[in-house]
Structure formats: structure tokens, C-alpha cells
Design a protein around this nucleic acid. Structure first.
Length: 571
RNA sequence: CGGGGUGUGGCGCAGCGGUAGCGCACUCGCUUUGGGAGCGAGGGGUCACAGGUUCAAAUCCUGUCACCCCGACCA
């Protein structure tokens, strides 16, 4: 390749690149603003974006890092289709249960096709058709493919979209031990990937949601703009998504059973107002919330010093819809909104949080009569709960199971791994014969990274005013070679010579050879904020010094030509 | 799906009953050019859409749609 061709796709006079001076109207997320202003993306519709040449270079760099690390781990790249027959999803049982509902279309012959939101079904089908023996196991397959999910609310530019590229990997093992090995292997791969993208991540215990399976971990990049809330123990041995987090509940001395008495509590419908009125601590109250769970009413009872974690309730009940019941539903069930209690309420199934058994024993609860509460309800004497489990939500300051104190942080979920076990292999007959010739279910794990979201998250983590500051590994280019007075032959020659030399050393150089205002070039360079910026002008030729700005140092240096080349040789 | 906000040239905005304007961007010319230039000359918009009120609608009314933000839900 000669220098002209090499320059072709790397000089701005030839590049399809448009930057914007102002933020687009309405948008909030900094990564979204910057992705737009630096011409990385172009919005097609809500949650659906095109990548432009500059943005696509970063995406490709991220994908290459992912590929290298996955391949190094021995995983094998494949490719699975986006369009899939509905039968595949019928086999796993997710055709009707997937949330949000699967996007689909009918072909000319009225056959139903799914636009895939994920690929467990497809990969399990491949394995069911092609694996027979324990000799074929274990292995890990992955691909980087487009997903489409009908998000209720796309947001934050690339942070939450409807169509996106995901790297999804799937492990196949003979037994639990093997599955654990694969799971740990991918966790290490993910650590490598994120550290190469220069993002600091926290690994947390997570809920497995629609995907299913038992154990699950999320990779969270800490950022105030993130939509996930996580809890980290200050002893740093425990961290979890709030959906999943457990904690040590306060215990109180068990009291002797009291007699029940009803009191007037006009308009005191909340624990807050009652607590003030009665001058009793929060843990003396029972909080009862009635939910509509897939059109059936279920009651949840928890001690007043805790809140209900709806994800935990949903998982226990194995339902898809769980919303607090409205007043009409409550009245129809003979309940009095604001004064509900499990006492003498037979029609409804109640789930108790285990906090109710940790003292003090006697509680204040609603009387199921308007403007009345009951004092002295004893948990074992009067209620004798049958279903007792953990349905409490962890909060800032609670005691962690490692002996530390839980702290709340916000973050962006950039990766998620699941131990699926035989959830899919059982339903889709992905089996193998073991050494004894017995047919066994293959145990699976699945592992995802959202590519575009990772880019947005890196920007959220690194941006400063009007600058993306992407790390060297994923910035669209490494060096911004800014030539001033480009019409000057000496400037042009020096610039091209330098371009070629640095390019040969393995750095992507973006050559700004545009014959436009100096200020525009500097501002574009600041927006893109590549790790290195070199300025060539008549001045450099006169002084025989070349100016380089090193972002990491936030400093400008003057080097001779030789020194500059040496500098890049030593990086 | 609830709550809020915004829709006017490519982008950001003003106009809020009398038939469309500003800045930037774009095209041409000259000058300038190490921090989003100056002067001059141009091109570009059925004012989101559909009804309605009015002599007259970007402007008022009704409805719809799109986008953004908060929540719900979700990887």
C-alpha cells in the first residue's frame, strides 16, 4: 500500500466526519451528547442508531479486544442468525413468556419469525443437533451479533437501546464442576476485556431475570448516571445488585405475647405517620403490601424497618407481572387500603419476610377497618406465618454478610454472566452420553457484553467538558496530527512524512489536512480528544521542533523529529 | 403503561392571530488563518401531522404522531 492509499481513509479532507458545536435539544446523558457532537452516531429512531465512520472505528476496536480475549481463552467464534422461526422459541417455552414480548413478523406463507433478542435457543439447538458424547465436551461458543429488544423506554443514547450488538458466549459442560470452571474462566476473560478498555468494574451478585438459571453476576462500571443500583460492603468481600442483595437483619429481644387491642388511627395510613403518632420505633410495625401477581392477589408482610424487594417476591412466586394492587382490587377482596393486615384475612396467601421472626414479637398492624390499627399482634400466637423467606431490600448502611457495612452506588451494567444449568438443555434435548452410556443433560452457562453500551460507559467514565477522553485502546485513532498552513509545501511534506513514520510504528494517525480555520481544527481535536495531538506548522519548520500534547500528562512538549519518533517507539 | 417536557431550514433557537426570522453550517468571491474569522453576494423551511375556529393560523381549540426526561419494567 502506498502512502496515498494509506492516507485515504485517515485524512480528514477525505473523511466523512461532521462535528456539532451545540448539544442536541432535550438530551441529558453526557455520553449521548458527546457521541452526537463528535459524529460517532446518527439517530434513526428512539433506541435505534447508525454508527458513522468515526464511531464505528471505536466499536471495531472494542470488538477486536473482545475477540482476542475470547479466542485466547479457547472459545470459538460462530455466527447465528437474527431471524429465527417461532418454533425454536416454542421449544424453550419463551415464545409467550419473554419480557418484553418478542418482536416478530410473518413471512409470505404466514410463518411466524422472531427477531432475536438473545440466542440461547439457537445455540442450544446447534448443540442438540451436533453433540452426542462426553468426548465432545466441554467447549465455549460465542458470536457478536445484533439483538433486537422492545425496550419499554430506550434512554441515554447508546446506554439503553432497542437494537444493539452483543457479544454473547455459551459454555457447554458435562457436570457442575465443569460448568463452574467455564464460568470462572469467562469471568477472568471479562476482567481482561474491561481492563483493556480501561474501565474499572465491580462484579456483583445479580438476579438472572428473563434469562433464567441459578447463579449470576453482573459487571458494573461505577457511574452516577448509571441506572443500576448496587450495594458494596466496605469490607469489599460482598457486592450485589439491589435486586439480589442480602444483608444481616437486626434482631430484637423477643417479648412475651400481649393481648390484642384495637386503637383509633384516623387518616394514619403510612408507617411514617403512625410511627410519629404512636412514638414507637419502626421495627414495632408490620408493613403489609398486597400485590397483583399475574392477576392473583398476594400479600407481603415485612417488619416496618425494612422495604419489600419486588424482584425477590417475583422470583419466589415465579410470575411475570407484579404490581401493587390498586384500591379497587383491594376493596373487591374485602381489604381496606391503608389499614390492611394479615390478621383475620383468610382469602389471600401471605408471604412473610424473615425479619418478622427476629423480634420483637408483638407488632402494630392494620385492623382491616378504616381508621383503625391493632396493637399487640403476636407473630406466632396470632399470625403463625407459613411462608417465611427473605423478601427485604438492602439499603445504604445495612450490615453486610461479610461483617462490613453496605454502601449504595450507581453503575452501568456492561456485562452479565449466568449459570444456566440444564434450563435450556432439558427443554431442547441437548444431551450427551456419559462414559457409562447414560444420557445426560448438558450444563450451560451464558455470558453477555453489550458492545455499544460499553463504548457509552467508557465515555461516561472518562469524559471531561467537551471531551470524550476515550482510552488509547478504544479511541477511534491514537494520534491527531493537526497540520496548520496546509498549503505550505514544507508543512505538508513534514506532516505526511510524520504520518507515515508513526503509522509504521503501529499507531492510528488521524491526519487533519483540512484547509479551514485553526480554531475549528483545535476544537474538533479537543472534542475527539485522542491520546496524542501533534501540531505541525511553519513554526515547527522554523524552530525544528514539533509540538505534541499528551493527554495523560495534560501537557504539551516540543520535540525534535528524532525525539518524537523515539517517543512513539517507546510507548 | 403513568407523570412531565419539546417539535419552526442541516444544527441550536426567536416569533405566539396579519402570511417566516436570527446565529452557526452550506455555495460563490476577496481578505484572513496557532484556538469555532471579516466583508460582500447567494441557496434552502407546505412552521411534526390531521381536523376545527377565523376575513386571516407557526401562533387559538381538539385529536394524533415523534423525540427527550422521571417512574414502572427490563440485559
Amino acid at each position: 500500500m502506498n502512502i496515498r492509499q494509506l492516507l485515504g481513509s485517515k485524512k480528514l479532507s477525505n473523511f466523512f466526519w461532521k462535528t456539532y458545536r451545540e448539544d442536541p435539544q432535550n438530551i441529558e446523558a453526557e455520553s449521548h451528547k458527546l457521541l452526537h457532537r463528535t459524529g460517532f452516531i446518527s439517530q434513526v429512531s428512539s433506541g435505534i442508531f447508525s454508527f458513522l465512520p468515526m464511531g464505528w472505528r471505536s466499536i471495531e476496536k472494542i470488538k477486536n479486544i473482545i475477540r482476542e480475549e475470547m479466542n485466547n481463552s479457547g472459545s470459538l467464534e460462530i455466527n447465528m442468525p437474527v431471524v429465527q422461526p417461532a418454533e425454536l422459541w416454542e421449544a424453550s417455552g419463551r415464545l409467550e413468556t419473554y419480557i418484553p414480548p418478542l418482536a416478530h413478523f410473518m413471512d409470505r406463507r404466514e410463518n411466524k419469525y422472531i427477531i432475536a433478542p438473545t440466542h440461547e435457543e439457537t445455540v442450544t439447538d446447534i448443540v442438540a443437533k451436533n453433540v452426542n458424547s462426553y468426548r465432545d465436551l466441554p467447549f465455549i461458543l460465542y458470536h457478536i451479533q445484533t439483538k433486537y429488544r422492545e425496550e419499554p423506554r430506550p434512554r441515554g443514547g447508546l446506554l439503553r437501546v432497542r437494537e444493539f450488538e452483543m457479544k454473547d458466549a455459551y459454555s457447554f459442560d458435562m457436570n457442575e464442576e465443569g460448568m463452574d470452571v467455564s464460568y470462572k474462566k469467562i469471568i477472568q476473560v471479562y476482567k481482561n476485556i474491561f481492563s483493556r478498555c480501561a474501565t474499572e468494574i465491580v462484579i456483583v451478585d445479580a438476579d438472572s431475570g428473563t434469562i433464567g438459571g441459578k447463579e449470576s453476576n453482573e459487571f458494573i462500571m461505577l457511574a452516577d448516571s448509571g441506572e443500576d443500583i448496587i450495594l458494596i460492603s466496605d469490607k469489599e468481600k460482598y457486592s450485589a445488585n439491589v435486586e439480589k442483595a442480602i444483608f444481616i437483619k437486626n434482631e430484637f429481644k423477643q417479648e412475651n405475647p400481649e393481648n390484642i387491642r384495637t386503637i383509633d388511627t384516623p387518616n394514619l395510613k403510612t408507617i411514617d405517620s403512625l410511627q410519629k403518632e404512636l412514638s414507637l420505633p419502626y421495627h414495632k410495625f408490620l408493613k403489609t403490601v398486597i400485590y397483583n401477581a399475574d392477576d392473583k392477589l398476594v400479600g407481603c408482610v415485612i417488619r416496618g424497618d425494612y422495604k419489600i424487594n419486588e424482584t425477590k417476591v417475583r422470583n419466589y412466586l415465579n410470575v411475570t407481572e407484579l404490581t401493587p394492587a390498586n384500591d379497587t382490587e383491594l376493596n373487591n377482596a374485602g381489604l381496606t387500603p391503608g389499614f390492611i393486615s394479615p390478621y383475620n384475612t383468610q382469602k389471600i396467601k401471605f408471604i412473610y419476610d424473615d425479619s418478622v421472626l427476629k423480634g420483637p414479637g408483638n407488632f402494630v398492624a392494620g385492623a382491616n377497618v378504616i381508621d383503625k390499627h391493632i396493637l399487640g399482634i403476636n407473630i406466632s400466637k396470632d399470625l403463625s406465618p407459613e411462608i417465611v423467606l427473605d423478601i427485604a431490600e438492602a439499603e445504604e448502611g445495612f450490615s453486610a454478610i461479610d461483617g462490613g457495612i453496605l454502601r449504595t452506588k450507581r453503575g452501568i451494567e456492561v456485562g452479565h454472566v449466568f449459570k444456566l444449568g440444564d434450563v435450556y438443555s432439558k427443554k431442547m434435548s441437548a444431551t450427551y452420553s456419559n462414559q457409562k452410556g447414560e444420557e445426560k443433560n448438558i450444563l450451560m452457562g451464558c455470558y453477555g457484553i453489550g458492545v455499544g453500551r460499553l463504548l457509552a460507559a467508557c465515555i461516561e467514565a472518562n469524559y471531561s467538558n467537551n471531551s470524550m477522553n476515550l482510552p488509547l485502546t478504544i479511541a477511534p485513532f491514537s494520534v491527531y496530527l493537526l497540520a496548520l498552513q496546509i498549503k505550505d509545501e514544507e508543512v505538508k511534506n513534514l506532516s505526511e512524512k510524520l504520518f507515515f513514520e508513526i503509522d509504521k510504528l503501529g499507531f492510528d494517525v488521524l491526519y487533519d489536512d483540512r484547509d479551514i480555520q485553526t480554531g475549528v481544527k483545535f476544537n474538533d481535536s479537543d472534542l475527539l480528544s485522542l491520546p496524542y495531538r501533534i501540531v505541525i506548522s511553519k513554526r515547527s519548520i522554523e524552530k525544528k521542533q514539533i509540538e505534541i500534547y499528551i493527554r495523560e500528562d495534560k501537557k504539551t512538549y516540543d520535540y525534535s523529529y528524532g525525539e518524537l519518533i523515539k517517543f512513539f517507539e517507546n510507548i
